[in-house]
């Protein structure tokens, strides 16, 4: 079995490449995805290999990109539109929410929307305004959408292939902070990582820490630091936020009886609230401490001089976990 050491963004490219080779119906479209290979190089070389009909530089219009993708998907193609940054997805919001998410429902199954909307999300790269948001909760709130956020190169390729093959629309959010942070062996051939399954990144008995995307690495670092103090964290990377792997969440919580959630999105209305509700509903009698939410603040994402304060840092995560353990 051959494999290469890839970064996360290279794994995105590899996943797209694999599916474009497998299935002629897969088409990639968006701003600067063609000749330029994407502003993060996530589609590098695809234009040369598959041509301008399948790797399409579109006019600068997100509603147009996603709206036409929905039409293509309904017609039988498998479009993979790219939104250049998550902060620029809003012109397409109406199309995603009012149509992609409910085309199957509204047409009683006559029309479907097998589309993957890819977008880099999240902060920490000293980017300009509107380039750092994490608004996954908007999409998780919408029934009819699947929402995926990988945190490793291996998972990225496998989850992306699953998303492309999925019969329903998927919002695939890529943690751009760790696009090039590390490499991992990624098999050359096709493989899938199933949607809707969390991964335990670190087993531990004292406290469950639920997280995803770029926060997984910071959380792991905090967990290792805490291990030296004798606190044994179980780190669960959710990988798919909708549908959430409730079983994995509940199983871990039953073991530890304590939980923290780490996400970079604002606290209010963020997924930490949903996870808290799940453990309340499913495992109340196991609970030994309030669930701690270690999140971004309820403020607009600041310009970058303040972003290190905004994002959950190792120190903040350690502090939050200690609160749970010492309760």
């Amino acid at each position: 079995m051959s494999a290469q050491n890839l970064t996360l963004v290279q794994a995105v490219r590899d996943g797209l490449h694999t599916e474009m080779q497998n299935d002629e119906d897969v088409i990639v479209l968006g701003e600067d995805v063609g000749k330029n290979g994407g502003v993060f190089r996530a589609t590098e070389g695809l234009y040369d290999e598959f041509g301008g009909d399948r790797v399409v530089d579109t006019p600068l219009a997100e509603a147009g990109i996603v709206g036409t993708s929905i039409g293509m998907a309904a017609y039988g193609l498998r479009p993979v539109p790219e939104i250049q940054f998550m902060g620029f997805i809003y012109p397409a919001f109406d199309q995603i929410i009012s149509h992609a998410a409910r085309l199957r429902t509204r047409s009683r199954g006559r029309f479907t929307c097998p589309m993957v909307v890819r977008a880099p999300y999240g902060g920490g790269i000293r980017a300009p305004e509107h380039h750092s948001e994490s608004k996954e909760a908007f999409f998780v709130h919408e029934p009819g959408l699947k929402v995926v956020i990988p945190s490793t190169p291996y998972d990225t390729k496998g989850l992306l292939i699953s998303a492309v093959r999925d019969p329903d629309p998927v919002v695939f959010l890529e943690p751009k902070l760790i696009y090039r942070a590390f490499r991992e062996e990624v098999p050359d051939e096709e493989y899938t990582v199933p949607l809707g399954e969390a991964a335990v990144r670190r087993e531990g008995g004292d406290v469950s820490v639920f997280t995803w995307g770029a926060m997984t690495r910071v959380t792991m670092e905090a967990a290792e630091n805490l291990a030296a103090e004798g606190v044994d964290c179980e780190v669960v990377d959710l990988r798919t936020l909708s549908p959430l792997d409730r079983d994995a969440v509940v199983e871990s919580f039953r073991k530890t009886g304590r939980a923290a959630v780490v996400h970079e999105a604002p606290k209010t209305g963020g997924l930490a609230g949903e996870l808290t509700a799940i453990v309340q509903e499913e495992a109340l009698l196991y609970q030994e401490a309030p669930v701690e939410r270690i999140t971004g603040f309820d403020t607009p994402y600041p310009l970058y001089a303040l972003e290190d304060y905004y994002l959950p840092s190792v120190a903040r995560i350690e502090d939050g976990i200690r609160n749970v353990v010492e309760y």
């Binding site: 620029f88 305004e129 380039h131 600041p302 310009l303 970058y304 972003e307």
Partner: peptide, 21 residues
């Protein structure tokens, strides 16, 4: 990346910078 860079002077009739196209 300073927040203060986003504050246009009161005497200038200039709206805030728009990054979303």
């Amino acid at each position: 990346g300073h927040e203060s860079g986003n504050r246009m002077p009161d005497e200038a009739n200039v709206f805030t910078i728009a990054v979303p196209i």
